[in-house]
C-alpha cells in the first residue's frame, strides 16, 4: 500500500503516515470492535483480570503465527510449514525445559531452531529460486518429521511456574505481545526492515535501487520461523506438555488471519496491525462459537464459510464500484 517508511527524520510526518496506513484496515477495526463488544456483553467475565488474561492467552499463539505469515506475505512469500514449525517448537520446549538445559536453555534452543529453520527455508526459496509454496510444503514434511523424532507421542513437560506465568491468571501473554509489536516497530526502522516492503512490492525496482532484497527476504523467513517456534513454546506452556502434531491447524489459520487483515498475496500490500486485527477477529470468532456450543466440526464448517465471506465481500464491493 504505502511504502513510506514509518520513521522519517521529520517527526511531523509520522502520524499522518500512520493515519494513511489505517485507511485500508479501518472497516476491519470496526468489525473487530463490534465483535469485542458483543463478546464482552455475552461473557462479562472478559473484564476481570483473569478473564482478560485467558482471552489474550487464547489469542496469543494465533497472533504470533499471523505475524509470522504476514511478514512473509509482505515480502511476496508464503509458508505452508507454519503449523509444523509450531509443533516442533512445542516439542523442543517440552523435552528440554524440564531437563538439564533449564528454561533459559530450552527457550534458547526453541529460538535457535526457529531462526535456523526460517533462515534455511529463506535461503532455499530466495537463493536457490524455488517456489515458496512448494518448498514450504515439502518443508512441512521435514519439520513435522523432526517433531516426531524429538517426541514420537504426546508427552514431555513444562516447568509448572512457567505455565503459571504464561498461561495462568496474569496478563503476561498480552505484555509479551505488546513487546513483540514494539520490537516489530523497531525492526521496521532498521535497514532490513525498511527493505521489507520494497522487496515485496517491487523486487526488481528495489534491487536496482540498491535495496538488499535477498537479505530482507531471508531475514523475513528467519523472523517468521522464530515467531512460529515461539508460538509453539507458548502452546506447550498452555497445555503443560508437548504434542508433535499440535500446530497443524495454525497453517490455515495464519493465512486466514493475514488475509482477513488485508495482507495481499503479491507482496508489499497490507500492514502488521491489520494482520493482528485479523488474528484477533479469527480468535474472537472461534471463542464465540465455542461459547455458543458449536461442536468442533460445526466450527470447521462455519470457519470455512466466514473466511470466504470475509475475504469475498470487500473484493465484491470493490468490483461493483
Amino acid at each position: 500500500m504505502s511504502t513510506i517508511p514509518s520513521a522519517t527524520p521529520a517527526g511531523a510526518l509520522y502520524w499522518p503516515v500512520q493515519a494513511r496506513r489505517n485507511i485500508g484496515v479501518r472497516s476491519l477495526f470496526v468489525v473487530v470492535l463490534g465483535f469485542l463488544i458483543a463478546y464482552g456483553v455475552l461473557f462479562p467475565g472478559l473484564f476481570t483480570a483473569s478473564g482478560f488474561a485467558k482471552f489474550t492467552q487464547s489469542w496469543f499463539p494465533l497472533a504470533l503465527v499471523a505475524m509470522a505469515q504476514a511478514i512473509l506475505m509482505l515480502t511476496g512469500g508464503i509458508s505452508l510449514a507454519i503449523g509444523a514449525t509450531v509443533s516442533l517448537g512445542a516439542v523442543i520446549a517440552a523435552t528440554t525445559m524440564a531437563g538439564p538445559l533449564g528454561v533459559a536453555g530450552g527457550a534458547a534452543a526453541v529460538a535457535v531452531t526457529g531462526l535456523g529453520i526460517g533462515a534455511a527455508t529463506g535461503f532455499i526459496v530466495v537463493r536457490l529460486r524455488l517456489p515458496a509454496i512448494v518448498v514450504t510444503l515439502a518443508g512441512s514434511f521435514i519439520i513435522g518429521g523432526a517433531a516426531l523424532l524429538v517426541l514420537p507421542r504426546p508427552g514431555g513437560s513444562i516447568p509448572e511456574w512457567l505455565s503459571d506465568m504464561l498461561a495462568g491468571n496474569t496478563p503476561a501473554a498480552f505484555v509479551i505481545l505488546v513487546l513483540i509489536v514494539a520490537l516489530w516497530k523497531l525492526y521496521l526502522a532498521t535497514p532490513l526492515g525498511l527493505s521489507l516492503y520494497a522487496s515485496g512490492e517491487n523486487p526488481v525496482g528495489a534491487y536496482r535501487s540498491g535495496v538488499p532484497v535477498d537479505g530482507a527476504r531471508i531475514a523475513a523467513y528467519a523472523i517468521s520461523g522464530l515467531l512460529s517456534t515461539g508460538a509453539g513454546l507458548f502452546v506447550a506452556a498452555q497445555t503443560g506438555s508437548g504434542d508433535p502434531v499440535i500446530g497443524t491447524a495454525f497453517t490455515l489459520n495464519s493465512i486466514a488471519a493475514a488475509v482477513l487483515g488485508g495482507i495481499g498475496f503479491l507482496g508489499g500490500q497490507g500492514t502488521m496491525r491489520g494482520a493482528l486485527a485479523g488474528s484477533l477477529l479469527l480468535s474472537l470468532m472461534i471463542s464465540v462459537m465455542f461459547f455458543l456450543g458449536f461442536t468442533p466440526v460445526a466450527q470447521y464448517v462455519a470457519q470455512g464459510l466466514i473466511i470466504i465471506g470475509a475475504v469475498a465481500i470487500p473484493q465484491f464491493r470493490k468490483v461493483q464500484q
Binding site: I255, A256, F265, L305, I307, I308, A312, Q315, F316
Partner: peptide
C-alpha cells in the same frame, strides 16, 4: 468473488 485461489480452496 475474486477470492485468492489459495484462500478459496483452503476454506
Amino acid at each position: 468473488l475474486r477470492v485468492h485461489p489459495m484462500i478459496m480452496t483452503l476454506a
